[in-house]
Amino acid sequence: MTYKAILNGKTLKGETTTEAVDAATAEKVFKQYANDNGVDGEWTYDDATKTFTVTE
């Protein structure tokens, strides 16, 4: 399944996708990606669109 992350960081804005077996696995991948890029904020998840959003 393909999951998407939308990054609304102070220094990084954009989107990325990952293939994962479930939302929990995708969330770990996206949170690591955000952390590696200095983005730390509030996370939300929309199951209907399989989209995570982080906003700083």
Rank of each mutant, 00 (worst) to 15 (best):
M1K: 13
M1P: 12
M1C: 14
M1Q: 14
M1I: 14
M1R: 13
T2E: 10
T2L: 14
T2C: 14
T2W: 14
Y3P: 05
Y3R: 04
Y3G: 04
Y3S: 05
Y3W: 05
K4R: 13
K4W: 10
K4Q: 06
K4M: 06
A5D: 04
A5M: 15
A5I: 15
A5G: 04
A5N: 03
A5W: 11
A5Q: 03
A5S: 03
I6Q: 05
L7N: 00
L7V: 10
L7S: 01
L7H: 03
N8I: 14
N8K: 10
N8G: 04
G9W: 06
G9D: 02
G9L: 13
G9Y: 06
G9H: 06
K10H: 12
K10Y: 10
K10C: 15
K10F: 11
K10M: 11
T11G: 11
T11L: 11
T11K: 11
T11R: 10
T11I: 11
T11M: 10
T11Y: 14
L12C: 15
L12G: 07
L12S: 08
L12V: 14
L12M: 13
L12R: 09
K13Q: 12
K13F: 09
K13W: 12
K13I: 10
K13H: 11
G14K: 12
G14D: 10
G14V: 14
G14W: 15
G14R: 12
E15S: 11
E15T: 13
E15R: 06
E15D: 05
E15A: 09
T16E: 05
T16P: 03
T16V: 15
T16M: 15
T16W: 15
T17S: 11
T17Q: 10
T17G: 04
T17C: 12
T17P: 01
T18M: 09
T18K: 04
T18V: 14
T18D: 02
T18W: 08
T18Q: 04
E19S: 10
E19G: 05
E19W: 15
E19F: 15
E19M: 14
A20K: 03
A20L: 02
A20R: 02
A20T: 04
V21N: 12
V21S: 11
V21G: 09
V21P: 15
V21W: 12
D22R: 02
D22N: 09
D22F: 03
D22P: 01
A23F: 12
A23K: 14
A23C: 13
A23P: 11
A23Y: 12
A23Q: 11
A23V: 11
A24I: 11
A24V: 10
A24C: 13
A24Q: 12
A24N: 08
A24G: 07
A24P: 08
T25W: 07
T25K: 06
A26G: 00
A26E: 00
A26T: 00
A26P: 00
A26V: 01
A26I: 01
E27T: 03
E27N: 04
E27S: 06
E27F: 15
K28Y: 08
K28V: 09
K28N: 08
K28L: 12
V29G: 03
V29Q: 07
V29Y: 15
V29L: 11
V29N: 06
F30W: 01
F30E: 00
F30K: 01
F30V: 02
F30H: 00
K31T: 05
K31L: 08
K31R: 15
K31V: 07
K31C: 07
K31N: 03
Q32D: 08
Q32L: 08
Q32N: 07
Q32P: 01
Q32S: 10
Y33I: 08
Y33G: 00
Y33Q: 04
Y33C: 12
Y33N: 02
Y33E: 02
Y33P: 01
A34N: 01
A34H: 02
A34I: 05
A34G: 03
A34P: 01
N35Y: 15
N35D: 11
N35W: 14
N35T: 14
N35H: 14
N35A: 15
D36V: 08
D36E: 13
D36Y: 07
D36Q: 12
D36A: 12
D36G: 05
D36N: 08
N37F: 14
N37I: 14
N37G: 05
G38W: 09
G38D: 07
G38F: 06
V39G: 02
V39S: 02
V39C: 04
V39K: 01
V39N: 02
D40E: 13
D40P: 04
G41K: 00
G41A: 04
G41T: 02
G41V: 03
G41N: 03
E42G: 05
E42A: 10
E42H: 11
W43C: 01
W43A: 00
W43F: 04
T44H: 10
T44W: 07
Y45Q: 01
Y45P: 00
Y45W: 03
Y45V: 01
Y45C: 00
D46L: 03
D46Y: 04
D46G: 00
D46A: 03
D46S: 05
D46I: 04
D47K: 09
D47G: 08
D47A: 14
D47V: 10
D47Q: 10
D47N: 08
A48M: 10
A48N: 11
A48F: 09
T49L: 07
T49F: 05
T49M: 06
T49H: 05
T49E: 06
T49Q: 06
T49D: 04
K50E: 02
K50D: 02
K50W: 05
T51H: 02
T51N: 02
T51W: 01
F52T: 01
F52Q: 01
F52W: 07
T53Q: 06
T53K: 05
T53L: 08
T53E: 05
V54C: 12
V54M: 14
V54D: 01
V54A: 03
T55W: 09
T55G: 06
T55S: 09
T55M: 07
T55V: 09
T55A: 05
T55E: 07
T55N: 10
E56P: 07
E56W: 10
E56Y: 10
E56I: 07
